[in-house]
Amino acid sequence: MNTKYLQFLPLLSFLFLWEILSRTLLNPLIIPPPSVVFKTLAIILIGNHPVYFLPLDFLYSLYHYVTGFGVAILLGIPLGMVIGWFRSADRFSYPLIELIRPIPPIAWIPIAIAILKLTHEAAAFVIFIGSFWPILLNTHFGVKSVERTWIDAALTLGVNSNGTMFRKVIFPASLPAIFTGIRVGSGVSWMCVVAAEMFGVSNYGMGYKLDFARGFSPDVVISYMIAIGIVGFALDRIYRYGEKRYLKWRG
């Protein structure tokens, strides 16, 4: 047997153990076995279920995620570059950032709903908070760690404006740190999608349905859990691929 597949052994053992336990020690009405869960997953995936249709919920969740995460990228990267490059911007923003940053994104949910009501925007705002800080701070760190010699070399080669320096040196040099921020931020944002949707910002969404099914269909709950995990994994893979493609110069 090919040893490559040996790495899946613990995963299969886990599923096997779960199946056994749920058919013996555990109550299958609370923890259904994987054989049941995967059947349910298939049903809600292809739309054979009267209440749950996973692809639609996926699109809603993706919409929330892309909006919040997208704004975090659009604001976090430029702001991170500014506070990384201009010492005074760093100095003056530091107390503000350090005060607001430790507030967990989930703690913003009541305020978000109070201001934006139960809307997509309220969810997007919480998701935005989740990835904004990692992206901002990693970009800031990236700019700070740009080698002085690169800047000097660029100056002697004729770069004479901040704009050109940003475009030609600071941004590409910070890109590895920016990617780290994007990956970390994406992970937090994806968690926030679930949390924000649980408050009922819309009647669809993977997080919303997860909470909705709580009382009566544990197989649906676990199906959504698995789907949420797979999407989170896929998102991370996309950014990893981006890293590999755009940072191949790191060797």
């Binding site: 080698e147 010699t149 690169w150 000097d152 070399a153 002697t156 040196v169 590409p172 040099a173 890109l175 110069w249 790191r250």
Partner: peptide, 14 residues
């Protein structure tokens, strides 16, 4: 005035 630095002056992303 072209300058050649001690080391690490190449842009690694290029």
């Amino acid at each position: 005035r072209g300058m050649v630095f001690q080391e690490f002056s190449l842009f690694p992303w290029r």
